Computed example of a mutant assay.
Amino acid sequence: MKAVSVVTIKKELQHRSTEELMELCLRLSKFKKENKELLTYLLFESHDESGYIETVKQEINEQFETINTDSYFYIKKSVRKILRNIKKYARYSLKKETEVELLLHFCQTLKDFEPSIKRNVTLTNIYERQIVLIRKIMATLHEDLQYDYNLELEDLEN
């Protein structure tokens, strides 16, 4: 089955009743974990963005604590998984400020991680790519936010 475009779906949804839309949303939430997570964010967490950011930061910290540090192979796999989750949570929010805050927290946690990431080229590259991405996203933000985030980024790089 070929999926139709978002425009076509939007036009069709305009012709549906509120009850039908609710049924479609509930049915959609049963199929993928991401759909359910997005609905949870939209319904319960989108009104309190700072609370959402703190919740995600706590989850990031918990994930870093459970990393198997026996070898850099396991560390790399876990760090990539954490980064995938951060990207997913940032997509739910669609706010650049949220993405920057989450990435800054990720980089700070990764920098402080033991064993040091400086002993592994791949982990260092992941860290540096996120710093570049933060700078790129920061360029699109308001000047006041850019200044605040730039201070945090300078602390991170020193």
Rank of each mutant, 00 (worst) to 15 (best):
V7L: 14
K10G: 00
K11F: 02
K11P: 00
E12T: 10
E12L: 15
E12W: 12
Q14V: 06
Q14Y: 06
R16Q: 07
R16P: 00
S17N: 02
S17F: 02
E20I: 13
M22N: 10
M22V: 13
C25E: 04
R27C: 02
R27M: 03
L28N: 09
L28Q: 08
S29I: 02
S29F: 04
K30E: 09
F31Q: 13
F31D: 05
K32R: 14
N35V: 01
K36L: 06
K36F: 05
E37A: 14
L38K: 12
L39A: 03
L39K: 01
L39M: 05
Y41P: 10
Y41A: 09
L42N: 09
L42R: 14
L42V: 11
E45M: 04
E45N: 04
E45S: 04
S46A: 15
S46E: 10
H47N: 11
D48I: 03
E49A: 13
G51H: 02
G51T: 00
G51E: 01
Y52T: 05
I53P: 05
I53A: 03
E54K: 15
V56A: 05
Q58K: 15
Q58A: 12
I60T: 11
N61C: 09
Q63V: 00
F64Q: 08
F64R: 13
E65K: 15
T66G: 09
T66S: 15
N68Y: 04
T69Y: 00
T69L: 01
T69D: 01
T69I: 06
D70A: 12
S71P: 12
F73E: 08
K77P: 01
S78T: 05
S78G: 12
S78H: 09
V79I: 15
V79W: 06
V79E: 02
K81F: 00
K81G: 01
I82C: 02
L83T: 01
N85T: 08
I86K: 03
I86T: 03
I86N: 03
K87H: 13
K87G: 06
Y89A: 10
R91L: 12
Y92G: 04
S93L: 11
K96V: 04
E97D: 12
V100F: 09
E101D: 10
E101K: 15
L102G: 05
L103P: 02
L104D: 00
H105A: 01
F106K: 07
F106N: 03
Q108W: 07
T109H: 07
T109V: 02
K111Q: 04
D112L: 14
D112K: 15
E114L: 10
P115W: 04
P115H: 08
S116H: 07
I117Q: 13
I117R: 13
K118L: 11
K118W: 08
V121W: 11
L123H: 05
L123R: 04
T124W: 10
N125V: 09
I126F: 08
I126D: 01
Y127A: 06
Y127S: 07
E128F: 11
R129V: 00
I131W: 11
I131V: 15
V132D: 08
L133W: 06
I134V: 15
R135A: 07
I137C: 09
L141M: 14
H142F: 11
E143N: 11
E143F: 14
E143W: 12
D144C: 08
L145I: 07
Q146V: 03
